[in-house]
Design a protein around this nucleic acid. Structure first.
Lengths: 149, 149
DNA sequence: TTAACATAGTTGCACCTGCAACTAATTAAA
DNA sequence: TTTAATTAGTTGCAGGTGCAACTATGTTAA
């Protein structure tokens, strides 16, 4: 029975890969003059799918605390990518909308994003990719089961 | 040809899984009264493998900037997990050593870590795990190739 | 109706992060 | 040898993060 080094087990390997991919993402966006952090990009993506989302829901689907999302939106509002609009029916709620500038930069980012995704998965068979996604989903389910215990 | 939703492609899925696993890691450490961030844990791990490493090398193998590592060590030194020792042969260099407290908490963390790893990979075949690690390594290589272009 | 509870969002605090610019020390070149 | 380039580490700055505590609003129960 062969010993497996810690670094070559899934979880550490997963963390390192995500980290390196994050660096690559940041570099590519920078090289292409797209002034967006990966966190900001994800928010734009979710708003592009469903504009006008409530802040709280946006926090939930991006897996961050409402605090973190609040500050992310604050920064993005300063840069004129999004606007917060108070709901009239429930004064506690903010809806978040893309601005034109937000829409434009998101559209501009798409080819870069596609390039990143194809470059990083270059040489990996479709079968292996699907298998990996299945394993990742399985890990996510294991986490959800434990968290809701 | 079936369309694949963005969220179910490898890279976004990878990011989300790493994030959720990070939450789980943090929660488990907290529940077990282990006062270590995941970043700090990784530094202890590397020092446990190779005590007295130079700060710069520690930054390199943990994939962070020397700035980030510098501040991480600073925090850990305040908590008495590590000590910085100036090299006599080259006064620019700091060697970083585990303290007894650092060694103790690392040893204490190991069973918790093993539990996390086995819980999160529960129900996934050894074969699938190995295949996933291979794919992750492949992605890392793709990144390295591009970064060094 | 009033009091108790729940919810959305913000703020203080502490931490992790990278870049650019800096100091101090070392090494290489002129 | 003196100067120039390099290297290790730190600091200022700006940003992302979560927790606990807070405000304001909304809902439910007594």
């Amino acid at each position: 029975m062969q010993e497996i080094r810690f670094e070559n087990t899934v979880l550490p390997c997963l963390g390192k890969t995500a980290k390196l991919a994050g660096f690559y993402f940041t570099d590519m966006f920078h090289e292409n003059n797209i002034d967006l952090s990966k966190e900001q990009w994800l928010v734009l993506k979710k708003l592009h799918d469903n504009d006008g989302m409530v802040q709280n829901d946006l926090a939930f689907i991006t897996d961050r605390s409402k605090t973190s999302l609040s500050r992310l939106i604050q920064t993005m509002e300063k840069r004129d990518y999004v606007v917060r609009v108070h709901s009239k029916s429930d004064k506690r709620i903010n809806h978040v909308f893309l601005t034109q500038k937000g829409k434009d930069i998101f559209i501009k980012s798409l080819p870069v994003l596609n390039q990143i995704m194809s470059e990083l998965t270059c040489g990996i068979s479709r079968n292996d990719l699907e298998s990996t996604v299945r394993v990742l989903h399985h890990i996510q389910e294991n986490i959800n089961k434990k968290e809701n215990k």
